[in-house]
Design a binder for these strands. Sequence first.
DNA 1: AGAGATTATTAACACGCGTTAATCGACAAT
DNA 2: ATTGTCGATTAACGCGTGTTAATAATCTCT
Lengths: 350, 350
Amino acid sequence: MNNKRVTSFDVAELAGVSRSTVSFVFSEDKQSRIRPETRQKVREAAEKLGYYPNASARALASNQSNTIGLIMTRSPRYIASDNFLPQIIGGLLDIVNQAQLGLLIEWVEPGQQIETYLQLTRAKHIDGMIILTPRFDDPGLTALEQIDIPCVLMGQIPECDLPYVDIDNRASAKLAVDYLIELGHRQIACITNAATAYSSASQRLEGYRDALKAADIALDESLIRIADFDAASGYTQMKDLLKEYPRFSAIFVASDNVALGALAAIHDAGLSVPEDISLVGFDDIPEAAFYYPKLTTVHTPAKEIAEESCHLLMQLLKGETPFSRTINIPTQLIIRESTRMIERSHITTC
Amino acid sequence: MNNKRVTSFDVAELAGVSRSTVSFVFSEDKQSRIRPETRQKVREAAEKLGYYPNASARALASNQSNTIGLIMTRSPRYIASDNFLPQIIGGLLDIVNQAQLGLLIEWVEPGQQIETYLQLTRAKHIDGMIILTPRFDDPGLTALEQIDIPCVLMGQIPECDLPYVDIDNRASAKLAVDYLIELGHRQIACITNAATAYSSASQRLEGYRDALKAADIALDESLIRIADFDAASGYTQMKDLLKEYPRFSAIFVASDNVALGALAAIHDAGLSVPEDISLVGFDDIPEAAFYYPKLTTVHTPAKEIAEESCHLLMQLLKGETPFSRTINIPTQLIIRESTRMIERSHITTC
DNA sequence: AGAGATTATTAACACGCGTTAATCGACAAT
DNA sequence: ATTGTCGATTAACGCGTGTTAATAATCTCT
């Protein structure tokens, strides 16, 4: 219940040294400058007084806040049902904690991007930022390119020169659809993970197209639906898509979250997976292995993505030149129980 | 590409006023002090120069960071698979954004609590904090009681005097189990949502006991298992519990996340829900309505909890005396398809 | 032992803004 | 015109720390 805030001055006084010495002790960079016994004295004094360096003062003086920002590109309504997010946050927290950094979470409204990015960076609330799920139509990104603040994209925007960490969405999606084709399916529907303004969504859709083309299957636009991150949208889109059944025997759903909703719609229609419809998801969120049926899906190493993004950003913060400004994390098709060889009956049906 | 940072001094110069005037314009409190036309001049100058008040300097001078902390009481490994979290974060972001506050996410390691709380509060990185899922065995909480910093618990700790926002876990759990009993079940198992060191876990377990006692059903400790937040632990515990089958015809799983794993274990054992086992979950996460079968569960208004916590904290920050330091959010049993009347066969079996 | 070289320590300024108390200016009443 | 009053504006100090350049202390070598 100390009524007065304790500052480095108090510590200095108690330790019988100057304030600068205290400051040196607490900025671990130049360890060698202070004699070990002096350092010890200071540490003890600080301990006794319960001294914690003031973050704001430190940030002001040193011009770095020791905090990084995680910027989300969608509204809280969609954030609330994104089961990919905890993995990202968990991964970031892990690294950030080790590096003694803070993690600030922000959300940017479409149309406000430039303003928000500038505000965040200029106000120096954060030293750098990670942008989760960037959008093609984000004018703020080009603005960021011209600014000094370190910034890493979790996801790739083709025209954009910012450093990024991503998976190869297009190739991974193709992998998934290839597998369906390999199982004998020729009529394959698709539900995206999000609006195509999100790079991951359009890239995964491209992968779907690639696979069909490679197998000489004509693209049927009527078998494509656009979802919105969550299971509810997957349910709605699948329900709509089922009007076309049995014009398809398999489906690629570009997000496990969305796939869960799609599964429910299929069950509600009295059909089953994989007997009537084979389904491949994307992301391999931790729950995917427990869905009914257990989801065949593309494993996206969320933790690794988070960690690599964070490492990359930290390198940029230190002014180091990273080995590469762009990092691609490999994915992997996980085969579980939501897919199977096409039924002979199905082949004759159409 | 301004090579020099723009400060309030620059704005003042361009607007032809003093720095103080600029400061007054940007702290919206005392609007009346500045003449509208002067205000306008300042705003235009700021706009033209691209001025953003420096957060650190502001925090240092005013002694408030305009940032609140969300403190999580478990390791990143468990954070990564918590599907309740996005709802909380979404809810907080919404409010925090409106109030022009920042949201800092932290994680506290068991054993480090006091140290971490002190560091966070004394360093003034944050003005106040919300502690998610508090633990009984957290010695930091009593430390916090004696400190000036505003703090709100999301969850209740009986011996603890800190303000909190919570649901009535015990009564809600009882509600869920009551419903199972009402359906004719007398042999009811239970899997907790987490270790009993977490208040919500032990309270929900208490509710389970209450219900049994109220119905004069003897408690069978061998039908209780402890899970760890995620589906994987639910799977493991259910698998173990199934050794006791058919000594139970229904189960209360105190978290939808965990319930998903339990469902998978039941399916894997060749049984079905609700035909062989009725299952009630807890939380009503957005996905629960899409599980197979759709989960009967206790709806926990996560968004509301987040919002109320944030509002309460903001009141405390402003120094206002809130109407109540403790807020209880009502829950509701949502009946879907994972529960049904007990089979006659089951009754005769035992 | 004394001069030079090296290291440990400190004084002093800077960081950008909030805020109080004092100053300035305009306008009304006398 | 002078004084008084009130509101708009500013000067100046403080917030707590980082950091450079200068000083003090210690050590090395002849």
